[in-house]
Amino acid sequence: MNVILFTEGREAIPVRAIPFITGWLMSPINVAASLANIDLPKKFKGLNAYHLLPNGKAAKMLPKEWDGIAWGLQALSDKLQSDEKIKDENNLVWRRDSIPLLPAGVFVWKDEFEQVFTRFYGSESHIRLEEREGDRELSYSPMIPSELRVTIIEGFAMPGETGAWKNRRSTDRDYVSDKLIRMNQGAEKFWANADRNDRDTHPDNAKVAVWFEQHGFSPTLAKKAATLIRPEWAPTGRKPEEQ
């Protein structure tokens, strides 16, 4: 999955993609703390994150805007660690649940990020025991779990686009309703990993409808949306009982 997007004629990286392109050298907490400029190593000193204004122009986020984000991530980390009975048993949960706590639609410029990343992680002062080939390299087509792919690009482009994403300005997508975007997200979330030959992997329409209601659909519209995104090859009704 290529995570590079384009806006204002420059290459950019969603902040939610940074943990993946760095191989989790930079966890979401590291990303937020560094952009808040409250980390001791000052890894991202001089680097700013941006979001797009309605007119399509990039607006810089101030370091203080990252404080609450960093606190929320730290709280999640502390809770998951306190719940552990075995060391690191919640690591996969952390990787799944921490990414959405980084803000959607926020990015860093690729050239600026590469500069600060190389400055800190490329120096000999950053020592890694038993370092492997590629540990200090950035991967712009990392393996991202399917359930997080839409999350990574939320706020940038329509789900389903392939290759590098080009950020669309609001005037370029006025014809696309927010509910259509949400339906595309729902299709990716519930059906991307479904096996047409295994009905146990097919989500129930009622469950899908609940998700749509949680995202602003009326109960009636949520039921219709759940039906519309259901692939033609997925039968409805009760599963036949095993003999």
Rank of each mutant, 00 (worst) to 15 (best):
N91R: 11
A157R: 00
G105L: 02
R16N: 00
M183K: 10
A59I: 09
D39F: 04
S123G: 10
R168T: 06
S34M: 11
R128E: 06
G155I: 01
I181F: 11
T171K: 09
F113R: 02
P54C: 12
D204G: 10
P103T: 05
M143S: 10
I29F: 11
T162M: 12
K79E: 13
S82T: 14
L5F: 04
D97S: 10
P103A: 04
A70E: 05
A104I: 00
L35W: 06
L47K: 06
I99S: 04
N30Y: 11
N205A: 09
W109V: 03
H202M: 07
W71F: 13
A206K: 08
P219N: 07
F156P: 00
V208A: 05
G163Q: 10
H51Q: 15
L92T: 09
L73H: 06
R169F: 07
D174N: 10
A192G: 01
R119G: 02
E213Q: 15
Q115M: 14
D88T: 14
E112M: 07
R10M: 00
K110I: 01
Y50A: 08
D174I: 13
D67H: 14
L129E: 02
R238W: 10
Q243M: 11
E130Q: 03
I13S: 00
V93S: 08
G122P: 04
Y175P: 01
G46M: 11
A104L: 02
L40W: 07
P219I: 05
A234S: 09
I127F: 13
D172F: 01
Q185L: 08
Y175W: 15
V15D: 01
N184H: 09
E11Y: 01
T7S: 03
L53K: 15
D135R: 13
Y50H: 15
F190S: 03
A32R: 06
I153F: 11
S125W: 04
K87F: 11
E213R: 15
G216E: 05
R96D: 14
E133G: 08
P159K: 04
M183N: 02
L73C: 06
I181R: 05
S77T: 08
R238M: 09
Y175M: 11
E89I: 00
I144P: 02
P54Q: 11
I13N: 00
R132E: 15
M26L: 15
H126V: 08
L101H: 07
P28N: 10
P231C: 10
V210C: 02
N91T: 03
K207W: 05
